[in-house]
Design a protein around this nucleic acid. Sequence first.
DNA 1: GATGAATGAGGTTTCATTCAT
DNA 2: AATGAATGAAACCTCATTCAT
Lengths: 204, 204, 204, 204
Amino acid sequence: MPKDTFFNLPEEKRERIIEAAIDEFATHPFHQARVTAIAEEAGIAKGSFYQYFEDKKDLFKYLMEQIVRKKMSYINRDLIEGKGKYGFFQLLREVYLSGIRFAKDNPRLVPIGIMLISDKELYGEIFGEHEDKSVDFFQQLLEYGKEQGAVYPKIDSVLAAKMLAGMSYTLVDYVYADGKLDFNDMEIIDQMLYIIENGIKQKE
Amino acid sequence: MPKDTFFNLPEEKRERIIEAAIDEFATHPFHQARVTAIAEEAGIAKGSFYQYFEDKKDLFKYLMEQIVRKKMSYINRDLIEGKGKYGFFQLLREVYLSGIRFAKDNPRLVPIGIMLISDKELYGEIFGEHEDKSVDFFQQLLEYGKEQGAVYPKIDSVLAAKMLAGMSYTLVDYVYADGKLDFNDMEIIDQMLYIIENGIKQKE
Amino acid sequence: MPKDTFFNLPEEKRERIIEAAIDEFATHPFHQARVTAIAEEAGIAKGSFYQYFEDKKDLFKYLMEQIVRKKMSYINRDLIEGKGKYGFFQLLREVYLSGIRFAKDNPRLVPIGIMLISDKELYGEIFGEHEDKSVDFFQQLLEYGKEQGAVYPKIDSVLAAKMLAGMSYTLVDYVYADGKLDFNDMEIIDQMLYIIENGIKQKE
Amino acid sequence: MPKDTFFNLPEEKRERIIEAAIDEFATHPFHQARVTAIAEEAGIAKGSFYQYFEDKKDLFKYLMEQIVRKKMSYINRDLIEGKGKYGFFQLLREVYLSGIRFAKDNPRLVPIGIMLISDKELYGEIFGEHEDKSVDFFQQLLEYGKEQGAVYPKIDSVLAAKMLAGMSYTLVDYVYADGKLDFNDMEIIDQMLYIIENGIKQKE
DNA sequence: GATGAATGAGGTTTCATTCAT
DNA sequence: AATGAATGAAACCTCATTCAT
């Protein structure tokens, strides 16, 4: 957790530091990212860094929390508005869409998350051992879908949740790799949803 | 490419070095992995390491090639046997199964591949810029499925291929995380396949 | 070019580092000179060295520039005073004298320059490919001598310049080898000048 | 001194090793020159190197001796033929000419000698502390010149010898730097000799 | 609080030389 | 005698972190 000094900083400076950190962590794996580079980019003294944060990991943890929070905000906004209105698949659509919007609005945040996934040791230190939260989320969504009568009840919610979560990654990575998404995001999501709904089998 | 000296080494020693490297790379991201640790673990002098390999990256590349080759061997064996016999979904099942078997037989190799994915720069240096091969593979498989009349022809092969590839990761990661799989691997795969085939929608 | 940190250092410390560097480079060819030795001798941490200089070569370049500048200062002082007063041979005498005075005042700097000469690759990196400056200098001096009517006009200025430059080295090396010069420096220079002026031939 | 094994080697192989050594020492200062490179270039095993030579320095010493011997041979041949025939300045001319011929025939040997000069420590280990032999040589020549009545007797032979020796270096370096000499070597030497004989002063 | 110099552990890599076959 | 693998000391350099002002 950053020290109080960090939170007492003028908004603008805090912002600069965070931006610099994002730049560095987006382009380098954690152990490769340099505190010096962040300090320079942010225009603060190297010593100041340690006045704000316990150490490199402290900053990274904080950053990660912010990212998660931000990503959540994309989802929630849509869901809150839609909760009553949408059916299960429409909700799912919104969720995926929010993921894409997040990636599009914050492309530099995407690789940071991806990088973390691969470093299990670091991941553990940051999120504890707890399971992937997004899986929980999709699992709950699926239960809701079953209640609604939209999802085939015999489906194993846990497995399906993992699949949906994985698909979410696939989607974001797809968007991120391609650079920019445009109109036909919709098309891609709709096709993906079609497959999720109906599978790929040829019906006779 | 390792130097000749490496290939001239007695089988046993070569094995020791590779094992040590796997241990190190499985538990540390590339830049965090230490040549010293590998040399010590393998019981060779640090200088010897550089008689066998150009540098750390050289060893890593080689290791990665071996991993890919090995993984391929799991797939190929099954496919070659089945080519004529199996229908599309049976083939897909075999492919996933082979992925799981690979992960089960070589659990330490899994995280190495996963780590690489997140380090785009390193990834590029090793595989060039070329796209994920597994996506190509699944795409071809899908085309075959369409010819066979097993896959709904309107499905976008590229997108579906990405999804199938992603699902493959999901599966392996699942297995890897849980430690060991037993009999009911089958069950999980079958459920996953059911979803892929039919989707998750409640048919009326 | 040393970093700012170096120039911000207290005079005394900067001096210590330079002295240590001179000691090391005076007794070892560049590639044999050790950063560790310099740091130890200067009483600074090895890491500090790299806070002051880009790398070993950076320090060496800087040192070399200082040496050249210092040597120049010996010449210039005399020349500026003498420009109007002296004839060509008197000027030449001053130049040689300044070379000797430099060598006498800064004996440890002499071998550093000499060592550099032999390492063409390093020399090129430091001074660029440009010709030996001292040759240029003597050439100009000779032209001046011809204008003055002191130098035999048919003499090839380029060749003679090379000879005078070489002789300058001979002289310095002589002084340096012998350890210390005393009164009869004058005598040696005068004899040398006599030869340069009149040659060694017995006139009939 | 190389071991017997070296001298028992077939002429052709010995030659190859020497050539490889020359290549390496001509392009790298002693401490930068690599035994490995020499062995590779010569097409022998690294281990064999130590069967022939005590160590790197041993080979270098031997090489240096050969170079000196070879250079001598250029001088001697001319001198022996000329001893009676030539006057002092003609002899001097022959000596310089032989230096140039040597440099032209063996350009790769020149920088090796030059490099050695700058590394006083190494120089001492190889030639002992004894004075520069070429100075001795020129001194004797000058005495002879005086006897002959060709050299102005009041000239200090030691100083003049140093100058002549230095000039010899100047000359060789000149030739070496320029790459190749052609016909007008003669011209250069003659001009140089003119200066040595008569000086550069304008006679009234 | 801000600064930036100081530190030193630790990392990769090189290479002369020895050793075992 | 010939080979080439093995060794390990030592070099350069990086960087997170601490210290002193």
